[in-house]
């Protein structure tokens, strides 16, 4: 059984032939499209390492069947930087030591971008911690992550104000 689906991945339209409907979005990205920035941690939706944006919303790519996402727009960690210029969330994670080993970081960053877009946290660190609780960091870089999200949110808001002006 072969299924053909269309996806826009990091701005690029792709047609993907799936020989097996069991392929998750995570495995499609990593194993078939060579986008290995998205990490496989638990593969059960419990750790958040596989977080990507689908149609602008953060989800666990390990718990989504690729076949069910026909027509979707997907953004992964590889799609963030503009050439050498890092995305503000990426820059803030470096600035605030928001990681140690780095394995959970792509998922943390994609989740942070989703959180900022959702706009429910304000500048309350407690709300940021709560809304980032789907991303586990076993190095325990949570304080740096929270600071990075707060700063990146501010940077992005300022940029939006400038762009609107």
């Amino acid at each position: 059984m072969s299924l053909s689906i269309g996806l826009t991945i990091n701005g690029q339209p792709r047609t993907v032939a799936l020989d097996d409907p069991r392929v998750t979005l995570l495995d499609l990205l990593r194993e078939r499209l060579d986008l290995t920035g998205t990490k496989k941690g638990c593969d059960r939706g419990q750790c958040g390492a596989c977080t990507v944006l689908v149609d602008g919303r953060r989800i666990n790519s390990c718990l989504a069947l690729a076949a069910s996402l026909d027509g979707a727009t997907v953004t992964t960690i590889e799609g963030l930087a503009d050439g050498e210029a890092l995305h503000p969330v990426q820059a803030a994670f470096i600035e605030h030591d928001g990681f140690q080993c780095g394995f959970c970081t792509p998922g943390q960053i994609m989740s942070a971008i989703g959180l900022i877009a959702e706009g429910h946290a304000g500048d309350d660190p407690e709300r940021i911690r709560e809304l980032m609780s789907g991303n586990i960091c076993r190095c325990g870089a949570y304080q740096g992550i929270t600071e990075a999200v707060l700063e990146a949110q501010k940077t992005l808001a300022e940029r939006n104000r400038r762009d609107a002006a």
Partner: peptide
């Protein structure tokens, strides 16, 4: 319930 990612899906 769950996490922000799961609630989104």
């Amino acid at each position: 319930g769950a996490s922000a990612q799961l609630r989104n899906a």
